[in-house]
Simulated scan of single mutants.
Amino acid sequence: MLKVHEIFSSIQGESSHAGWPCSFLRLSGCNLACSWCDTLHAGDSFAGMSVADAAAALAALGLPLVEITGGEPLLAPETPHLVTTLADAGCTVLVETNGSLDISRLDPRAVAVMDVKCPGSGMEGRNDYANLDRLRPRDEVKFVLVDRADYDFAREIAARVWTRQMVHFSPVPGRLDAAELAAWMVADRVRARLSLQLHKYIWSPDARGV
């Protein structure tokens, strides 16, 4: 059974799909503890749900773009089956994953939006760097940054993949000013997108189910 924390529809706030209406399924539980985590509420609150019931609940929302997130969705053995079920139904499926677990288990039709944890997260040592070689053409890579040290780290790692993958640099609100990050990116001519969490500008940063 899937440990489902919440299912809702909203505007996709991140990735190259930002701005599109999207259905979300958030799973409970994570194997990391990032210093800037904004989904602590998903840690241990859930209802058990079968893959078939979860897919039906998402289909009932009527949106062709679906994201599976967490927590960490790849902790659930059922996640690859859910992704395949949704892809078979014609959905574009995004899987937001923290980069510590093997992404090759995912259906090739899915889009893995994979974090690489920077030092400021406190979790840099948990990165599975082999995932950089497992990325498929549609997959995307995200770096969440708290300071210049994180930026320099991200730029070095991102240079390994940005000729073939979409790369996002995302500042942690209240810890790294977006304008400052933008200036660094322009000065260094990095091949990455400045990614702001769109949903946190539309609604309160603390709002849930959006």
Rank of each mutant, 00 (worst) to 15 (best):
E96C: 05
C91I: 00
P205H: 04
A60R: 11
G71L: 02
E140T: 13
C30P: 09
G29L: 01
C34W: 11
A57D: 01
R26Q: 06
S170R: 11
A192S: 05
W36P: 04
G48E: 15
T39N: 09
S170I: 01
F143N: 00
A159G: 12
L74G: 05
R175G: 04
V161S: 06
A179N: 14
C91L: 01
G62K: 03
R109G: 07
F169W: 00
S204K: 12
A33H: 13
T92W: 08
G120K: 11
V210Q: 08
G99F: 09
C30T: 01
N31E: 08
C91Y: 14
P119H: 04
L82H: 04
L58R: 01
T163D: 15
C118N: 05
V4R: 10
V210K: 03
E180G: 12
F24K: 13
R155C: 12
I202Y: 08
L75N: 10
I68D: 09
C91Q: 05
S28K: 05
L61R: 14
P64D: 14
A55Y: 02
R26Y: 01
A60Y: 04
P171D: 02
S10R: 03
P171T: 02
C37R: 01
L27K: 00
P108Y: 05
T92C: 15
D38H: 08
C30W: 04
L61Y: 04
E156Q: 15
D115V: 01
Q165Y: 06
K3Y: 13
V144R: 07
S100T: 14
E14D: 03
D53M: 13
M1K: 12
A52T: 10
L135G: 12
A54S: 03
C118L: 10
C37A: 00
R189M: 04
L58D: 03
Q165T: 05
W184E: 10
H168P: 02
I202F: 06
E140N: 00
L194V: 05
L74T: 07
R155D: 13
L86K: 08
M166A: 12
R160W: 10
A149G: 09
D44I: 00
G122R: 03
L65K: 13
C30V: 02
Y201A: 10
P21V: 08
L63P: 08
A154H: 05
D177Q: 11
S16M: 14
S23D: 13
Q12P: 06
R160D: 08
Q165I: 06
G120I: 10
R126M: 15
D150A: 10
R175F: 03
K117Y: 00
M1S: 14
L135P: 05
H41C: 10
G71R: 00
S28D: 00
V144S: 07
E14A: 06
R136K: 15
F8W: 09
N131M: 08
A159M: 11
A192C: 03
